[in-house]
Amino acid sequence: MKNTPSRLVKSVALVAAVSVLAACGLPRLGPNKREIFAGSVMNEGDAFIVSVNDRVTRATSVVPALGFSNEFKNAGVLGSDVIRPGDTLGLTVWENVDDPLLGGSGTGGSGPAILEEVQVDGSGFVFVPYAGRIKAAGNTPEAVRRIITSKLSDATPDPQVEVRRVAGDGSTVSVVGGVGTQGVFAIERPTRTLSAMLARAGGISIKPEIAQITVTRGGKNGKVWFQDLYKHPELDIALRGGDRILVEEDTRAFTALGATGTQSRMPFETQTLSAVEAIAQVGGLLTTSADPTGVFIFRNEPADIANKVLGRTDLIGAQRMVYVLDLTEPNGMFMARDFAVRDDDLLYVTEAPFTQWDKTIAALTGTLGAADAVATTAGTGG
């Protein structure tokens, strides 16, 4: 008779546990496959669910189109270091006399005279002491050197003159972002193209695989992958005064959720990213809980691609698409290798059915253990 309360308590606890599990469910990572498929347009949902095959991978393989317009590519290389209004020149003058006109900075005043910044005015002229106003715009630094030398020869014997262009407001470009040295650089003979100017700025300081170069000229922008400058020589454009060059990392990213090693927003590490690479990047599938038949890519697909994937022509505007990958199929890994992940995609891996079953057993075992303790206490009290 003393066992009756114990059995009663256990029965009541079991019924209560099953009722709670049935009513509230168990903790889980997200929807299961059945629930995802229930949201299909075929089931009066709002998303098209598509199994990935060769045709789908071809239709969805869209890589960001980066490049320069013909206006950028057809601009010819600037002439040989031609000076323009707004340029800044540096002048150094050596005089072969003990008492130089320009006042050298060496011992006894016999060192060279250095004029660090001589601005070319709007009319294209510069002023040099004892040489007067000299036409610089339209000439090369070498031509200006000869003119100044000729002018100074009337005042001092055998002057030696050096003329160089430095950063200023004329034929210069600004380079910012992920480069070795940010700043304003003059367009000179060795730095008249984009790749040469990047080298002048110390090269890029970010991963080449995801580096993007943006050039702004006259209110228009062009953008290319850094590596394409060397793969496609026509993209190594000639520079123009006032160009702005920005070097930055690719900003694309995808989100990983579900039974994966990492659940977070992940940046692209390469120009193109396949589903297999995306899975590997987040640490792979969880071997203890992931369902390899339930790998999903959620995406808002442009209408032209959605129509192509679905074999239709009537869809207008972005469409909610869910692409399904089954890694257990004979060609499942190949499909995942060929399917391209795109910016803002959501990679979601469902839990295997046994995972929920294990959770149910664990929950019931824990509940029954608690019930047994209650029953023992009740029996003892009786």
Rank of each mutant, 00 (worst) to 15 (best):
P5E: 02
L8W: 02
V12E: 02
A13H: 05
V18C: 01
V18I: 14
L21E: 01
A22T: 10
A22E: 03
C24Q: 06
G30A: 01
N32T: 14
N32I: 07
R34M: 01
I36Q: 07
F37A: 06
N43H: 14
N43C: 06
D46C: 04
A47T: 15
F48S: 09
V50K: 11
S51Q: 14
S51V: 13
N53E: 15
T57D: 10
R58M: 12
A59R: 14
S61D: 12
A65G: 12
F72L: 06
N74H: 15
A75N: 10
A75M: 03
G76F: 03
V82M: 08
V82S: 02
P85R: 00
D87M: 05
W94C: 08
L102T: 15
G104F: 03
T107V: 02
G108M: 11
S110A: 14
I114P: 08
Q119K: 13
Q119E: 08
V120L: 00
D121H: 00
F127A: 02
P129Q: 05
Y130Q: 10
G132M: 02
I134M: 01
T140W: 05
E142I: 11
A143S: 03
R146E: 05
I148R: 09
S150F: 02
P157V: 14
P157M: 12
P157Y: 08
P157D: 03
E162F: 14
R164D: 02
R165W: 00
G168P: 00
D169G: 15
S174D: 12
S174T: 13
R189T: 05
R189I: 09
P190I: 08
R192Q: 04
S195H: 07
A196H: 06
M197L: 07
L198Y: 00
A199W: 00
G203M: 09
I204D: 06
I204F: 09
S205Q: 10
P208S: 15
A211W: 13
Q212N: 11
R217L: 08
G218T: 08
K220R: 12
W225Y: 08
A238P: 09
G242F: 00
D243K: 13
R244Y: 01
E248Y: 02
E249S: 11
E249H: 01
T251L: 03
T255G: 00
A256S: 13
A256V: 07
S264C: 01
S264W: 09
S264K: 15
P267R: 09
L273H: 10
S274T: 07
V276Q: 03
A280G: 15
Q281I: 06
G284L: 11
P292Y: 07
P292E: 13
G294R: 10
G294F: 03
V295A: 07
R299F: 01
N300A: 11
A303N: 10
V309I: 04
V322Y: 01
V322Q: 02
Y323H: 04
V324I: 05
V324H: 12
L325A: 09
G332E: 11
G332D: 13
A340K: 13
D344Y: 14
D345Y: 09
L347A: 08
T350Y: 04
T350I: 07
E351P: 14
T355D: 05
W357I: 06
T360K: 07
I361C: 00
I361W: 03
A363W: 07
T367E: 04
L368D: 07
V374Y: 06
T377P: 04
T377C: 00
G379L: 00
T380V: 08
T380R: 13
